[in-house]
Simulated assay, not measured.
Amino acid sequence: MNQTTAVASPLSAEATKPRGRWRKHFWGYAFVLPAVAIFLLFLWLPIVKGIVFSFYHIDFVKGNSYVGLDNYKLIFKDPDVGTAVKNTLYYMFLCIVIGFWVPILFAISISELRRFQGFARIAAYLPYVVPVVVLYGLWRWLYDPVGPFNAALEKVGIAPISFMTDKSWSMISIVIMETWQQFGSAMLIYLAAILSIPRDWYEAAEIDGAGVWRRIWHITLPAIRNQIGLLLLLQLIGTSQGYQSQLAMLDGGPNNATLTYALYIVKYAFNSFNYGVASALGVLMFLVLGVLAVIQHRLSARGGNAA
């Protein structure tokens, strides 16, 4: 029986060597290296230092001193931490109930338009480009006791609402403001997904006598379910870190009603100058967000495979 032996060429053998692969991809590594260095320097180095600092009492004058788990023990004894966690969960809940469905509704409504669709897209996205300084000033004026909102309520016989000073309304008011400003970016993602649905599906449904609501329920929503799940997780991760609006509008008030977990980290670090406890709070948040990030990655990979 004749046996044939495959002889590898010297060129292919050279390419399989580590040095050969390195030379082949040298310029690719060279272009990626600055981005990797920036990523390590400004993301992972602070994360590692934050984990280390969570076991120390930070003093820039006398030097740092190791305290072990004392910072974590202080966190679990601090009643305001529990308040901040509850407020953060309440804030996340309000953002889902009030704000999560707004971009979906706008995207579906715009996709159903036969005219002025381009104008509707621009109009819906415009609030997202409003600078935050202008945004906060505008909504402070709208929420003022004698502002436009209360003036409109008074005209229809409803008592004025203390949007900023009433504990039951303060967080809701912030969520409404953020929904108005931020729904445009998510709306464009949903709209792109809806416009990628084959039009034959809608035409077949119309021939079968399906109305608008049946087409939305049986075609549009199932087709964009992967985007809905992904953006839901992204919103959970984003709102869990929310503090900017709470800090700028009310500084956590009234009576800690808008004190979120991330805002409490900022207060520990820059008001109390207790960077060790602030780092420990950040580590706990990092662990929770890491779990959410893993879930997001799994769902994203599943959505890509489904596509």
Rank of each mutant, 00 (worst) to 15 (best):
L259T: 13
A269G: 14
P254M: 02
A293D: 11
L247A: 09
R298E: 11
A280M: 05
V294M: 12
L281W: 02
G253H: 11
V288S: 02
A262C: 04
L292M: 08
G252V: 11
T260L: 12
L250N: 13
Y264W: 15
F270Y: 14
M249H: 03
H297L: 15
A280L: 05
Y275F: 00
T258W: 11
L247E: 13
F286N: 14
K267C: 04
D251I: 03
L281P: 10
G276I: 04
N255R: 03
Y275I: 00
V266S: 09
V294N: 13
A262D: 07
V277P: 08
V294K: 11
K267S: 08
Q246Y: 07
A293V: 13
A293W: 06
S300P: 05
L247M: 13
A257S: 15
L250E: 11
L284D: 10
L259K: 07
I295F: 09
Y264E: 15
Y243C: 04
N271W: 00
N271E: 13
G276A: 06
L247T: 05
L247N: 12
N271D: 13
M249F: 08
I265Q: 12
I265K: 02
Y243S: 03
Y275G: 01
V291T: 10
F286A: 15
V277H: 02
L292V: 08
A269C: 09
V283Q: 03
A248S: 09
F270I: 10
M285N: 03
L284R: 04
Q244N: 15
S245Q: 10
V288Q: 04
K267Y: 10
I265W: 03
A280G: 08
S279D: 09
N255V: 14
F273H: 07
Y268V: 05
G290C: 04
S300R: 01
I265R: 01
R302I: 02
Q244C: 10
V288K: 00
D251W: 00
I295V: 04
V294D: 11
D251N: 04
G282E: 02
Y275K: 00
Y275D: 01
H297F: 15
I295P: 08
G276P: 10
A278P: 12
A248G: 11
M285V: 03
G290A: 01
A278V: 03
N271C: 04
Y261W: 03
N274V: 07
V294L: 12
D251L: 00
A301W: 13
F273G: 06
V283N: 03
N255I: 15
P254A: 00
V266P: 05
G253Q: 12
Y264L: 14
L292I: 05
G276D: 11
Q296K: 01
A278Y: 08
S272M: 07
L284H: 08
L299H: 08
A293K: 05
Y261P: 12
H297C: 14
P254V: 00
F270K: 07
Q244S: 14
L281G: 08
Q244E: 15
